[in-house]
Design a protein around this nucleic acid. Structure first.
Length: 423
DNA sequence: TCTGGGGTCCTAGGACCC
DNA sequence: TCTGGGGTCCTAGGACCC
């Protein structure tokens, strides 16, 4: 039987920021979500000071200052680039690899009695640290769900040298007895509550729970988790990523928006961003979903959220055309008198580009497709908004704030780090 | 004043068909 | 007074993940 390994980058966003600011080693650091909204990554020192995942930035302001915590806005160009360096190193190890998220990958390691899989994993940790500079932890176990648990143990116990293997039954059960049910992959807040009401608090109790009851209460997904806790793999490696089903682009605004004009600019801008992704993946979309909302935390000021889906007569990847429909959708749901905090669009019914359509309407005209190719090239070279549809607006006063963003050290020539010598 | 963004999967229930 | 059964498809909403 093969061994699943979960390779998990430690405090990934923080580690990325530290790579170019080595003086921040051993110092508390946090990274904020888009629009500088919440804390979404914390160094161990920041965790120890009590800063919680997902906690709003403005509520932590005073405490962050008092403890002299370094604060960064999120810099996805940097994180994405470092992620792909880690992943390509893994892909070169000749194992089966599944890239699970920006900072995690599963490996399937062959079982062989004369092979020390733990030593191999330790070696891999070292290699990644040396070659990319990002610290990782690795969990080894007979199922993905157990490997997840193993990796969190590896992270918490420095004595493990970055690796934890859950192998023999006794060790697995001891570990599960000390793991709260809420810490299991796939068990969220709602399920935790249901389990608690049923007297199930630990992973071991969950593993031994009545499977019919689990199936009824937590659906087939919960049952899979339980079986995986028992050491029987239910979730296999996903070698090729399945084709996208939707592409979303949405942002919170710097300040609430009240005018139709500003919302139009935002929706046109988000549509353009999503359309670039669409074309990049050689896809077209058959429907576009537009949504907007006022602040959901301030319902006393009058809450309003709405959305509309528009189906296209034929699939498209053409920014002006998609923008046209998106704005039509916006028109239908916009109501005057509200303070909008966020809006976005979603591209749906995605299909492969160039699929010959057996339909009265042929796809986009050739010239239009060429125009989009040219536009993407120019924007890639000169920056995202060099060429855009007029509706997107020029000054974008509504766009999100990112006050503490680090430079795009690795992906932008203008922002390469320089050494010494001042500016 | 200020609370992220981008995804997937599952289920229940309604519409519709014969 | 009595109002089938079985199937598919679609959608909205819930739940979860990082």
């Amino acid at each position: 039987m093969k061994t699943f390994a979960l390779v998990d980058c430690n405090n990934f966003y923080v580690s990325c920021e530290r790579l170019f600011r080595p003086e921040l080693q051993n110092r508390p650091v946090v990274v904020l979500s888009n629009n500088d909204g919440c804390i979404i990554a914390r160094s161990n020192e920041a965790k120890a000071l009590g800063f919680a995942m997902g906690s709003p930035y403005f509520k932590n302001l005073a405490l962050l200052r008092r403890h002299k915590v370094s604060v960064f806005s999120s810099n996805y160009a940097l994180y994405g680039d470092l992620s792909s360096r880690v992943m390509s190193l893994l892909l070169h190890q000749e194992n089966e690899v599944e890239i699970y998220s920006i900072d995690e990958a599963f490996l399937a390691l062959p079982a062989s009695p004369n092979w020390d899989v733990t030593a191999y994993a330790r070696d891999l940790c070292k290699k990644i640290k040396q070659w990319v500079g990002i610290p990782v932890s690795i969990g080894l176990a007979p199922t993905k769900t157990l490997a997840k648990i193993a990796s969190t143990i590896a992270k918490k116990q420095p004595a493990q040298q970055g690796v934890c293997r859950l192998h023999d039954q006794q060790k697995i059960d001891n570990t599960l007895a000390q793991t709260p049910a809420s810490a299991i992959w796939g068990i969220g807040r709602r399920s935790t509550k249901k389990l608690q009401q049923h007297g199930i608090h630990t992973a071991l109790q969950l593993k031994e729970a009545d499977q019919d009851w689990i199936r009824k209460t937590l659906t087939i997904t919960g049952l899979r988790t339980v079986i995986e806790l028992g050491g029987m793999p239910c979730l296999d490696m996903e070698k090729a990523p399945p084709p996208r089903k939707s592409i979303v682009s949405s942002r919170s605004f710097r300040r609430p928006i009240t005018t139709h004009q500003h919302l139009k600019e935002a929706i046109a801008t988000y549509t353009a961003i999503a359309a670039v992704k669409l074309r990049h993946q050689k896809l077209r979309c058959g429907a576009i979903h537009v949504f907007l909302t006022t602040n959901r935390f301030q319902k006393e000021k009058g809450f309003y959220a709405n959305s509309q889906t528009i189906t296209l007569a034929s699939p498209s990847g053409d920014t002006p055309r998609l923008t046209h429909y998106a704005l039509q959708g916006l028109q239908a749901i916009f109501k005057k008198g509200y303070r909008y905090s966020k809006a976005g669009i979603m591209l749906l019914n995605l299909s492969k580009e160039g699929h010959r359509q057996l339909h009265l309407f042929r796809g986009e005209k050739k010239e239009r497709r060429e125009l989009m190719v040219a536009m993407d090239k120019i924007n890639q070279q000169w920056g995202r908004h060099t060429l855009q549809v007029a509706a997107s607006g020029l000054n974008k006063s509504w766009s999100m704030s990112q006050e503490y963003k680090s430079p795009a050290y690795t992906t932008n020539w203008q922002e390469l780090p320089h050494t010494g010598g001042g500016k």
